[in-house]
């Protein structure tokens, strides 16, 4: 019985130059490694548009989606990516895991390894948790977001989407708007964009974009009006105004006044400017509903590309882990 189209196996992306069993962050990656993932993702993207959306690259491998912090989008994306590579997938969330019973992260992970999990995709509220596991386990560890530290696959899908639409990343003016301080997406995006040669401007309240970010080699603007006319890409982050944010800015209303991408502001965007958002979006807060659904929005393309990027990451890291062993 044929479970997959054998042809794509022959044109699977080159993995000879990839040597990492884990993907923990973008900061430690070389530009060539980022480009390798993006090229692999481009190859895998064609798989999803086929009639039979599956290749046998990871047949017989087990991937554990270990989500200690809740997520729908990223978890589903990794799960689908694994399915399309023919891996077996197990989902573990905080509420169903022994972490609830007081087991430590280390012990839970060692148990997963004892069950021969080849790949562990980890989402965790603590920065550094994926590195902690990577140093202790033979399994491939893929960081699906650790605290406010990094969310590497999101950054990769962001630059993939930019490159796909604008042909390049180098030299582009990219603005990241919103709650930068608590955003792992912002940090990974900054590293990826800087390494690929973009000019990055962070936009947000001074409490959420502290001066220390300038040391990462980015510009900081205090009003969205300062960047709407010149930006090639605007990446809007979800803004929260829950209990823990009350001391950072007074109200969502005031936030929108200075930082919301309203219809009036969007009218000043360059026609070629991409409007991005990692989701989930707050319609009418960081972005007006019509802009989110408008022609410059690539928000749903980002989701589609996320699948291809995650296929590439799973494939490359899993292959490297095999070489290491």
């Amino acid at each position: 019985m044929r479970t997959a189209d054998p042809k794509p196996t022959r044109d699977l992306p080159q993995s000879a130059n990839w040597h990492r069993k884990d993907l923990l962050g973008i900061r430690e990656l070389e530009l060539s490694e980022i480009e390798l993932i993006l090229d692999a993702a481009a190859a895998f993207k064609t798989v999803s548009s086929r009639d039979i959306k599956k290749v046998p690259a990871l047949r017989g491998k087990t991937m554990v989606n270990f989500f200690v912090e809740p997520s729908t989008r990223t978890r589903t994306s990794f799960e689908l990516a694994a399915f399309r590579l023919s891996a077996d997938v197990v989902n573990i969330s905080a509420t169903t895991s022994s972490l609830q019973k007081g087991e430590t992260l280390k012990d839970t992970a060692l148990n997963l390894q004892a069950l021969h999990a080849d790949i562990i995709v980890l989402r965790h509220s603590s920065a550094g948790a994926p590195k902690f596991l990577a140093e202790r386990l033979d399994s491939s560890i893929i960081n699906a977001g650790d605290g406010a530290h990094e969310h590497p696959t999101q950054a990769l899908l962001d630059v993939f989407t930019i490159r796909e639409h604008l042909g390049k990343v180098e030299g582009l003016k990219v603005a990241i708007v919103g709650d930068i301080l608590f955003s792992r997406v912002a940090r990974s995006d900054i590293w990826a964009l800087k390494k690929m040669g973009a000019e990055v401007t962070l936009v947000g309240p001074s409490t959420l974009v502290p001066r220390s970010f300038e040391e990462m080699g980015v510009e900081v603007a205090r009003h969205i009006d300062d960047i709407v006319e010149s930006a090639d890409v605007i990446n809007l982050l979800r803004i929260q105004h829950e209990r823990q944010r009350k001391e950072y800015f007074p109200s969502l209303n005031e936030y929108v006044r200075f930082f919301g991408l309203t219809k009036a502001r969007a009218a000043k965007l360059k026609p070629s400017c991409l409007v991005m958002h990692p989701g989930p979006i707050n319609r009418g807060v960081e972005i007006d509903s019509e802009i989110a659904d408008g022609p410059q929005s690539v928000i749903l393309t980002q989701v589609t590309n996320g699948l291809a990027v995650r296929m590439a990451v799973l494939y490359l890291c899993s292959t490297a882990a095999r070489k290491v062993r």
């Binding site: 550094g128 650790d146 605290g147 406010a148 530290h149 990094e150 940090r187 502290p210 220390s212």
Partner: peptide
């Protein structure tokens, strides 16, 4: 320490 490294590490 609140500074460059806490910014980078998200701690």
């Amino acid at each position: 320490h609140e500074g460059y490294w806490s910014t980078v590490l998200g701690l």
